[in-house]
Amino acid sequence: MTDPLASSGLVVVDKPQGMTSHDVVSRLRRIFSTRRVGHAGTLDPMATGVLVVGIERGTRFLAHLVAATKSYDATIRLGAATTTDDAEGSVVSGASAASVTEESVLAAMADLTGDIMQRPASVSAIKIDGKRAHERVRAGEEVEIPARPVTVSRFEALAFRRSGEFLDVDVSVHCSSGTYIRSLARDLGEALGVGGHLTALRRTEVGPFLLADALTLSQLEKQPRLSLTLDEALARSYPVLPVTEEEAEALAMGKWLEPRGLDGIHAAVAPDGRSIALVREKGKRLATVFVARPNTL
């Protein structure tokens, strides 16, 4: 029997520079010949790398796809601050970074590592009174977003390059979701007194999804295919709870099971490897959070 979810799942796209996340969604709608395409975790047009996209019923799973951590490779230019904290903005201030030492950069980076308070970039997608911050900035408004707690578990310098009055630093960052790399660039420049902004950004991980999973748009044009089926996506994103065939049938109907003493959300997987649902204990019930394979399919 043909699997009704054979065309549903996730595509991990290696987003090219210059495209918005919505541009990628539009391209994939054409490639996969479906309107049911959506993305998780927006990437700026200048950024490249991992963009997780849901196809068909995979779009329903995106709401339950919680990527607690992300990783990036980036280049920070010290010696100038910009309106957008990246190379697409206009330079607003700066000072020569010719005398900035690698040791001082490493010390300032250490101060920006760990649990910190970070002020998001003014051109972020954060909504202020119902309107996104970047829309307010581009309309000429002054935007100041309050600092919020984030965790930067890794902020490492990979290479230093001097270019006239500038010092370019290639960095690797592993951080909590909600951390802005352009804000790290801005804050690093401010700490050193010379200004800083982002000149390159590549996302290498979103939760359990890696660049190794990613396909380019040209690869997908030649051969449309999923990076992970919906079965694989659920099992990779959450701890697996093996269930019997009878229990799988009950969950497919939205019924609840007896509690097992579980902590958090689990992917209920049938004996044949089908991921039936996401489940969570609520009181005396093991209830469904998301049914991937409803019995109505």
Rank of each mutant, 00 (worst) to 15 (best):
T296L: 09
V24M: 13
A67F: 13
A248H: 05
V143H: 12
P16Y: 00
T83G: 05
H39P: 07
P208L: 04
M19T: 11
A139H: 01
G189Q: 09
L211P: 05
E88V: 08
A6L: 12
R260F: 02
A107Q: 14
F160P: 03
S26H: 11
V13Q: 12
H266W: 12
I276R: 02
S172T: 03
L78G: 09
L167F: 08
L217T: 08
S93L: 08
S176R: 09
D115F: 02
L251C: 06
S93D: 15
I55A: 06
P16S: 04
P45N: 11
D168S: 06
S90M: 13
D23Y: 01
R274T: 14
D187N: 09
L241F: 10
L201Y: 05
L5G: 01
S122W: 09
I128G: 03
L106D: 10
L220P: 04
S275I: 05
L112G: 06
L10P: 10
P120F: 08
R293S: 01
E88P: 09
R293C: 01
T34H: 06
A121H: 02
R274L: 02
K15Y: 00
V25D: 14
R285D: 15
G94P: 07
A74P: 02
H174F: 09
A98F: 01
T48E: 15
R57P: 00
E190D: 14
P242N: 09
E258C: 00
T288L: 04
P271L: 04
H197G: 08
E165N: 12
R27H: 11
M19R: 14
V50N: 11
F160K: 08
E144W: 00
E247K: 00
A233E: 00
Q118E: 03
A270L: 01
Q223G: 02
L230D: 00
A40C: 10
V24A: 13
G18R: 04
G89Q: 10
E247H: 01
T84V: 08
P224I: 10
A277P: 06
R138E: 12
G195S: 04
D170A: 15
A40K: 11
D213W: 14
